[in-house]
Measured scan of single mutants.
Amino acid sequence: SFQYVPVQLQGGAPWGFTLKGGLEHCEPLTVSKIEDGGKAALSQKMRTGDELVNINGTPLYGSRQEALILIKGSFRILKLIVRRRN
């Protein structure tokens, strides 16, 4: 089963996490790295392996390109929903 975790990061880029996968690579869009001391790490809500399913209220369909555009369009606040295996 899965758990959906809301994450809100503040203060602008860099957000402190790296993505891998996506439709382009025929795999889920997941968090591959969280930078020590970065905003994602400080939130204590994101983990490597989390799947990104929503950015700023926009549902994602797995495209890494789409996710990067939405993330780049976030100035002060980035709201994410990640899906994690229980």
Rank of each mutant, 00 (worst) to 15 (best):
S1H: 07
S1Q: 09
S1Y: 15
S1T: 13
V5Q: 09
V5Y: 11
V5K: 01
P6Q: 15
V7T: 00
V7D: 08
V7A: 05
Q8R: 09
L9H: 10
L9K: 04
Q10C: 12
Q10G: 10
G11T: 04
G11N: 04
G12P: 09
G12I: 02
G12F: 07
G12A: 02
A13D: 07
A13V: 06
A13G: 10
P14I: 01
P14Y: 03
P14A: 08
P14K: 04
P14F: 06
P14R: 05
W15S: 07
G16V: 02
G16A: 01
F17Y: 00
F17I: 00
F17S: 05
F17C: 06
F17R: 03
T18C: 14
L19R: 02
L19T: 05
K20W: 06
K20I: 08
K20D: 11
G21P: 03
G21M: 05
G22K: 03
L23W: 11
E24G: 09
E24W: 00
E24D: 13
H25V: 13
C26S: 14
C26L: 10
C26R: 13
E27K: 10
E27N: 06
E27I: 05
P28V: 00
P28D: 10
L29H: 04
L29D: 03
T30H: 11
T30W: 05
V31H: 08
V31T: 02
V31S: 01
S32E: 14
S32N: 11
S32L: 09
K33M: 12
K33L: 10
K33Y: 10
I34C: 02
I34Y: 03
E35K: 09
D36P: 14
D36G: 10
D36F: 09
D36V: 13
D36A: 13
G37K: 10
G37M: 07
G38D: 01
G38W: 02
G38C: 05
G38I: 00
K39C: 07
K39A: 10
K39H: 07
A40I: 03
A40V: 03
A41C: 12
A41H: 13
A41L: 06
A41T: 05
L42G: 10
L42H: 13
S43P: 00
S43H: 06
Q44H: 11
Q44I: 00
M46I: 13
R47F: 15
T48R: 10
T48H: 11
G49D: 09
G49N: 02
G49H: 07
E51T: 06
E51A: 00
L52W: 01
L52R: 03
I55S: 04
N56E: 03
N56M: 03
N56P: 00
G57V: 06
G57I: 00
T58I: 09
T58E: 09
T58D: 01
P59S: 12
L60R: 04
L60Q: 05
G62A: 05
G62W: 04
S63E: 07
S63N: 11
S63W: 08
S63D: 13
S63I: 07
R64L: 14
R64C: 09
R64H: 13
Q65T: 12
E66M: 08
A67F: 05
A67M: 01
A67G: 04
I69Y: 13
I71E: 02
I71C: 06
I71G: 01
K72V: 04
K72S: 11
K72A: 12
K72H: 11
G73Q: 13
G73L: 06
S74P: 09
S74T: 12
R76K: 15
I77R: 11
I77H: 15
I77C: 13
I77V: 14
L78K: 00
K79G: 05
L80C: 07
L80R: 02
V82C: 08
R83P: 05
R84H: 06
R84F: 03
R84I: 00
R85F: 07
R85E: 14
R85Y: 09
R85C: 09
N86G: 09
N86Y: 08
N86V: 14
N86I: 13
N86S: 11
